[in-house]
């Protein structure tokens, strides 16, 4: 029995487990609480062997490992890595409403066969089978505009054109002004 670690740290570990399972939206409070208590007791045992790790971390490690093991047992797909198995499993839980349909099943030693079947049926594929087709643009002849752009300016850019337009507009108004002054009507 660990006598050094303050009780407050174990309280925090329990609160964390409860929060985590509640966020998973799996089952009711009673099941989640009993689950948390069970995992906490496992965590205490592990902590007595290695007290260098905090109760919170130990408890959450136990919870993660339990989830990995449980989904390995529940999911049919064997090619999944342990790390990805939990993600795919929880995806399936969300997709099948398993948390509501089998509220006491999470981390149970004997998961119901229909739950296993339901979770295994779910696919994480977000698209149908690929049917790759080539789609490439055809060469476009832009005709006169392209010819004008290439032959007249070589490098077509709007900025010098606008500058030139600005200068010519200024000249136009200057001439107009001078005209009005020189030949008043």
């Amino acid at each position: 029995m660990d006598t050094v670690t303050p009780q407050s740290e174990w309280d925090e570990a329990l609160a964390r487990l409860l929060a985590f399972f509640a966020a998973l939206e799996f089952g009711g409070i009673e099941h989640r609480t009993s689950l948390a208590m069970r995992l906490l007791s496992e965590a205490r045992e592990r902590h007595s062997e290695n007290s260098g790790i905090s109760p919170v971390e130990t408890a959450m490690d136990v919870a993660s490992e339990s989830l990995e093991k449980w989904f390995a047992q529940v999911l049919a797909e064997s090619h999944l890595s342990p790390a990805n198995r939990v993600a795919v499993g929880l995806f399936a839980v969300r997709a099948t409403n398993a948390g509501t349909v089998w509220p006491a099943a999470l981390l149970s030693d004997l998961p119901p066969a229909d739950l296993r079947a339901a979770l295994s049926r779910v696919s994480t594929r977000t698209g149908p089978d690929l049917a790759i087709t080539s789609m490439t643009s055809r060469k476009m002849d832009y005709g006169a505009m392209q010819v004008i752009a290439q032959e007249t300016w070589h490098k077509f850019a709007w900025a010098p054109i606008l500058r030139a337009a600005g200068i010519w507009t200024a000249i136009f108004f200057a001439v107009l002004f001078a005209y009005g002054r020189l030949f008043p009507q």
């Binding site: 925090e12 609160a15 964390r16 929060a19 509640a22 905090s54 109760p55 919170v56």
Partner: peptide, 30 residues
């Protein structure tokens, strides 16, 4: 893993606030 495994005291205040929110949202508070 880090978010859920670190004791609250070891979390950056921003993450600690998020943890407090999650805890509150599920009917627990600390």
């Amino acid at each position: 893993h880090e978010f859920w495994s670190r004791p609250a005291a070891h979390l950056h205040p921003w993450w600690r606030d998020r943890l407090a929110e999650v805890t509150r949202r599920v009917g627990l508070s600390d």
